[in-house]
């Protein structure tokens, strides 16, 4: 991939289109056909792509419109999982926590068709908005998180399950790589849950299973945790970029990174996805400069802290991305 300065990207998700949410409910109740649902997902995906392209983002995603959530989507498509039932996460928010009842089996690519559709449409979108060189990435939930957010009955330990999942997800990565996906991201929000060197070594082992021999640029997204425990281990993960949240913790994470010789590229969260207020271009520029204090501009990938699905609507998501796009455009001229 051609190296430029301050390559902008996203973490992956967009606010789920209300029509898709409703259609997903109707599909579950067998009140609409799968084709009707797919059509709405495609329409919503086109909107996500258009928004990212016109906002000036360089490496974009499909917006994960077809994913109920980041765990269930994959649990439903891998062998070994049983459908879960509701478990509360906070307040009145629940997710269907799956149960692993057998060894994990890769039944076929889970995100490849979505990537192909999105990649093809991104070319049309670039023509529409007079842009070029925009790349389409693909994301999947990592083995550590999949294991941590599942019940398990058939594996001897969480470690056993994590590595079993890594073998299956390596096939997913390989399929994307073979199809030409230029940027593969592994989402590991659970990584900072369990402290300790042993946990980080487990992640390193699992990541290597997935990323070894890939041609694609690789990234690991980690959020909402104690990043102190992540370093220096994350610098040894077999991935090109470490993608973290910063804006949400007032850039405290930078103090952690400054302690080390940060040799990888950094996915740098410069807008907060938990706040609906849109950051100004000036503020985003100021935020980006905080990383340039000790990293080269080629290493820094400005992006939102996390997936945009937590924002109230598509327009807020678009405006946040636009602030990043405009900030980077100005900085590229100024630097």
């Amino acid at each position: 991939m051609a190296k430029k300065i301050l390559t902008t990207t996203v973490v992956g998700s967009h606010p789920r289109n209300p029509k898709v949410v409703e259609a997903a409910r109707l599909l579950k109740e067998c009140r609409i056909k799968k084709a009707e649902y797919d059509k709405l997902v495609d329409e919503a995906t086109r909107i996500c792509i258009d928004d990212q392209v016109r906002a000036g983002i360089d490496i974009i995603a499909d917006g994960e419109q077809g994913r109920e959530d980041m765990q269930v989507f994959f649990a439903e498509r891998l062998g070994g999982f049983q459908e879960g039932d509701w478990v509360r996460i906070w307040g009145n928010n629940y997710f269907r926590k799956p149960v692993v009842a057998d060894r994990i089996k890769f039944k076929g690519p889970m995100t490849l068709d979505d990537w192909k559709f999105a990649e093809k449409y991104s070319k049309e979108s670039q023509k529409k908005f007079k842009r070029s060189g925009v790349l389409m990435k693909q994301m999947f939930t990592g083995p550590y998180t999949m294991a941590d957010w599942s019940f398990y009955e058939s594996h001897s330990s969480r470690r056993d399950l994590t590595l079993d999942l890594a073998e299956a997800l390596a096939k997913e990565a390989k399929a994307l790589d073979k199809a030409g996906c230029p940027y593969i991201q592994i989402d590991e929000p659970a990584l900072c849950t369990h402290p300790g060197e042993e946990e980080m070594m487990l992640e390193a082992e699992a990541i290597e299973i997935i990323t070894k021999r890939l041609k694609a640029y690789t990234a690991i997204h980690i959020c909402y945790g104690d990043f102190d425990m992540l370093f220096p281990y994350a610098l040894e993960f077999d991935a090109d970029l470490i993608d973290l949240e910063f804006a949400n913790n007032n850039f405290r994470t930078l103090d952690v990174l400054r302690k080390y010789d940060f040799t990888k590229d950094l996915g740098f969260g410069v807008v907060d996805v938990h706040k609906k207020e849109v950051e100004s271009v000036a503020q985003v520029k100021k935020n980006i400069m905080l990383a340039l204090d000790f990293l080269k501009p080629e290493q820094v990938y400005p992006k939102p802290d996390c997936g945009l699905k937590l924002l109230p609507d598509e327009n807020t998501a678009y405006l946040k991305l636009k602030a990043i796009g405009e900030a980077v455009k100005e900085l590229r001229e100024e630097l």
Binding site: W86, V87, R88, G91, N93, Y94
Partner: peptide
């Protein structure tokens, strides 16, 4: 203890994400 379905559904419907 896990909230029974009737309570879970009622709380979501009435109070959204959190009361």
């Amino acid at each position: 203890y896990p909230r029974p379905d009737l309570l879970r559904e009622y709380q979501i419907k009435t109070y959204g994400k959190q009361k």
